[in-house]
Amino acid sequence: MYGTDWTENVAPDEAARFELIAKKLAALQANRNEKYGERGRALHRQAIAGVQARFVVRPDLADVLPIALHVGPFQPGAAYDAFVRFSNGGWDRPRKDTPDVRAVAIKLLGVTGPKCLGSADTQDFLLNHTRARTPRTPEEFAALIEAAAPGGTLGTIWRLIQAVGVGRALAMVKGTLDGFKVPFSSFASGTFWSMSPFQLGPSAAMFSLAGVENAESRPGGLTADLASRLKEGAAFSFRVQLYENATATPIEDPTVVWETPFIEVARLEIPPTELTAPESVETANYIENLSFDPWHAVEALRPLGAFNRARKVAYYAGSVQHREVIPDDEVRPR
């Protein structure tokens, strides 16, 4: 079963607060753009790979997901072309295998229906390899980024203490370090999480993506491992966890891990891809000019919670500084 009594708590001063966060992230983005001589993303600047894929919804969807929740792309047997970007989560361009947040961004094409942002027939899903957030609010997240961006462990801790106080600073540092300890041996066999909830028709859900192949990592590090696996193709299970109630599955508390069952609703299928082939390089470059945004969504999959509401403001501000962004309504399969 699923709950439908979810609510959002929108503070009256959110708009001004989130504009301030967006300005801070935009300033970091401008700083790194100048450093690297490029127009890159504020976060997730370092791409690992960009490929084409197919998103195939299971034909027996009604057997596992109530029909009332068959919304947006989640229609039995539906299939969509997609672009997939694997990345590191940081604002710099270190060696690709340097410890970092690992992430996957997916853009589905041909998803019709009223949209949360714009009118393009696309649907984006953004997922990280950490399951829950350590910062409790968008302001704490921005403070963590601001504290860490100049570098230096002791300096980061001191700046964070100045911003949020000793107790929260130490908790956030511990949570962040614990996140880096989460086993992650391969992009192709890893598990990724939306970390924030989304509307799912009358209910709400968390999304996750899990590699179907659960094999040991291959030699050469994460980047070489992914390149090797993609030569053979890769498949991922796309899953939802349904909202139950405000205590077990809160909308506004990103630190709580939802424990409701996983329901596989689709497969993400990447065909055999040689990343160094000219056509693959062209596709990867094309994907680098795309904007991935959780608000590129049908209204029935509207992003929920304060973090998602803050992202709506920050992602738009970031797209202005990011390359020559291809408008979503002009995105086409390669």
Rank of each mutant, 00 (worst) to 15 (best):
L170S: 15
D293Q: 01
Y316N: 01
A227M: 06
G175Q: 15
L290M: 14
G110L: 00
E213N: 14
A105V: 05
M206F: 09
V212P: 09
P254S: 00
G211C: 05
I48T: 08
R168C: 06
Y36R: 03
T7N: 10
F292G: 15
P135Q: 07
L160S: 13
F207R: 09
P271R: 06
P150R: 07
V298A: 09
R133S: 10
A30C: 06
A248H: 08
D253K: 11
E232Q: 15
I106L: 12
F292L: 05
R95C: 01
W91L: 01
L126G: 10
P76Y: 07
Q123V: 04
W158L: 11
E213W: 09
A169Q: 05
H70Q: 14
G113W: 06
L69K: 12
G165S: 12
V265Q: 10
L126N: 14
S185K: 08
P250Y: 06
A42N: 11
L154C: 10
I145N: 11
P303N: 13
I263Q: 12
K115P: 04
I326G: 05
N31A: 15
P271K: 11
L20D: 03
E38N: 14
A188D: 11
R239P: 07
P294E: 07
V325E: 03
L170F: 15
D329V: 04
E324M: 04
V111Q: 11
